[in-house]
Write a protein that binds this DNA or RNA. Structure first.
Length: 550
RNA sequence: GCGCCCGUAGCUCAGCUGGAUAGAGCGUUGGCCUCCGAAGCCAAAGGCCGCAGGUUCGACUCCUGCCGGGCGCACCA
């Protein structure tokens, strides 16, 4: 059971015993000042109105009636009515052994009961290579999946390939032109074509593989032929870069194969029609999204008979995603946020609760080098590519840097800082703490010192304030992970790890681990092992490695 | 014009769903390696939390209105 749950139970028992009204929710916080205890709650102040008594009076009653708990050394009432809890050092010492015993399971939910979540991210168009903002979305999405899974949620990660519609056609025609150019034929890119160098390379590959299009192929067949080839190759390349980044998707969905070919958009339109949620106007078919909070109604079938993109996406969400999950989370770029209300409207119209569809906006990334904006390469018609980023700064530094920021806050990514292998770079600071700990154990082995058995370590010698603080910090970890998963905010884990590393480095500087006092040495080795283990668990949630040495 | 996001130290950003005296990194200044990894540690300086109201025991946090920045407002995707 989590510590705050135990405390809440104790609080409720005290309230009952004192004849006070109970509390549905109890917020525990970790005070900034040590004098305010290890945990504090404002429960007495919250109850003041319902109980018709002064907060401090209620707090006093709670203290008097609080059941004795191993966890708690003493309770204090402070300020306007805060209830401050001081943990028992003896209990903390014992808890350290439990952290060690739990190992990689420490911080994971005990019971797997989190429902099924469909988590879509990156989903870059199959019209070119992945760029830096895709790397950010990949880091956030993958870490979210890890976080949610650690809390017992069944997560399916998904990359949705938009291999249909106008841009598919534009891509196909662009490749068609490039192939003709390879053959020495005069051909120019269409108005909305893709000018990137990569299509020239793709045309070369196409030729080299001896591919060809039937001479008698119709326009329609040419588009299909070149479009399929281009999408297949580009998606392959995207998948490869993501794999190098440590991100693998459970599902790669295809707009064409999984939605359009299944006739799902028509089914959704029929559904709308049968419920009176759509109407004809100006030769087009409109979905009455204003009935569900959108600011204007939306076209779902154009006057030329084609489906609009949102119509297809609504079908995808309703049938495919909700067909396999209770909850949908989409990570979108800021340019798509105007699109959210209509999707919400559609899903509510189709009977899904509003909270079952969540959208996280992953903001843009500005690339800097030593504080100066990195010039986009106009010649290539491209930005900074994700594989270039990985090559330059590496996977761990890239991921950690992205996860040091809230996803909805625009990010300045300084290549020079991320590349630098110094303290400027938070990822090395955290990894260094782990490597240092491994190094201590390596040193111990060299000196013929056996590591203590976690379950039987006497942790009582850990009496230094810095040691008590470290243990308490480690005890926060499960709640931290839970909170980060609940809020869908992986950056909390990154920050917390940085704090833990800082506390460890400071303690390490002032306290020797390997020494003559064997009891103390074993206790400190246990502490080191626990810190190292938690750092490893935390980094794993971020998809960042915990190196043995650096 | 309407909608969404963002204004916190010189810079980049946290602030745990409303708590007690505002946090970190970088940068600046000054210290620390005969001792388990100096990719480290210790210390100093640095703030009208954009502005003004409101809600309450209590606001960086919630509400309203301004100011400033970003992004959206298609029968594009």
């Amino acid at each position: 059971m989590r510590l705050t749950e135990t405390l809440t139970d104790g609080l409720r028992a005290a309230l009952a015993k004192a004849g006070l009204p109970t509390l549905d929710e109890c917020a525990w916080e970790i005070p900034r000042q040590a004098e305010h205890g290890d945990y504090a709650t404002n429960a007495a102040m919250v109850l003041a109105r319902a109980a018709k008594r002064a907060p401090r009076q209620i707090a006093d009653l709670i203290v008097k009636n609080f059941p004795p708990l191993d966890e708690v050394e003493r309770l204090e009432v402070a300020g306007p009515g805060f209830l401050n809890v001081f943990l028992s050092p003896a209990w903390c010492a014992g808890a350290l052994r439990e952290i060690l015993a739990a190992g990689s399971a420490y911080g994971r939910a005990e019971s797997p009961a989190g429902g099924r979540v469909r988590l879509e991210f990156v989903s870059a168009n199959p019209t070119g290579p992945l760029v830096i903002v895709n790397a950010r979305a990949a880091a956030v999405g993958d870490s979210l999946a890890r976080l949610l899974r650690s809390q017992g949620v069944q997560v399916t990660t998904e990359f949705y390939v938009n291999d249909a519609g106008n841009q598919f056609e534009a891509l196909a025609r662009s490749l068609d032109v490039r192939v003709r150019q390879e053959l020495g034929e005069p051909a120019v890119l269409p108005e909305n074509g893709y000018p990137g160098e990569y299509l020239v390379d793709l045309a070369k590959a196409y030729r080299a593989e001896g591919c060809r299009v039937a001479p008698a192929a119709s326009e329609r067949e040419r588009v299909e032929h070149f479009g399929r080839y281009a999408v297949t190759r580009i998606v392959e390349a995207q998948r490869r870069v993501l794999r190098d980044y440590g991100v693998e998707f459970d599902v790669w969905s295809s707009e064409q194969r999984d939605v359009r070919d299944q006739g799902l958009p028509e089914k959704v339109l029929a559904e709308f029609a049968s419920r009176g949620l759509s109407y004809d106007a100006d030769g087009a078919l409109w979905f009455r999204s204003t009935a569900f909070g959108d600011d204007k109604d939306r076209v779902v079938r154009k006057s030329n008979g084609e489906l609009t993109y949102p119509a297809v996406d609504m079908a995808f969400h309703h049938y495919v995603k909700f067909g396999a999950a209770d909850r949908i989370i989409d990570l979108l770029g800021p340019d798509h946020h105007g699109y959210v209300p209509r999707m919400k409207a559609a899903l509510q119209a189709l009977g899904h609760p509003a909270e079952a569809y969540q959208v996280l906006i992953v903001q843009l990334v500005t690339l800097l080098r030593d504080g100066q904006p990195v010039r986009m390469s106009k010649r290539r018609g491209e930005f900074v590519l994700m594989d270039e980023l990985l090559e330059e700064v590496g996977r761990d530094a890239a991921r950690f840097t992205f996860l040091m920021r809230r996803h909805d806050s625009p990010l300045d990514f300084d290549l020079a800082v991320a590349t630098r292998q110094t303290s400027d770079n938070p990822v090395y600071y955290v990894q260094y703490a782990h490597a240092r700990i491994r190094s201590i154990f390596g040193q111990a082995v060299e000196q013929g010192i056996a590591a203590p058995v976690p379950a039987s370590v006497d942790t009582r010698p850990l009496v230094e304030p810095a040691e008590q603080a470290l243990i308490k910090r480690l005890l926060e970890y499960p709640e931290l992970v839970r909170g980060a998963a609940l809020a869908l905010e992986p950056h909390r884990v990154a920050y917390w790890l940085h704090e833990l590393a800082a506390e460890f480095h400071a303690w390490y500087k002032h306290h020797r681990v390997i020494q003559d006092d064997v009891r103390l040495m074993h206790a400190r080795m246990a502490l080191c092992a626990a810190v190292g283990g938690v750092i490893r668990n935390g980094l794993d949630l971020l998809g960042v490695s915990a190196p043995e040495s650096m």
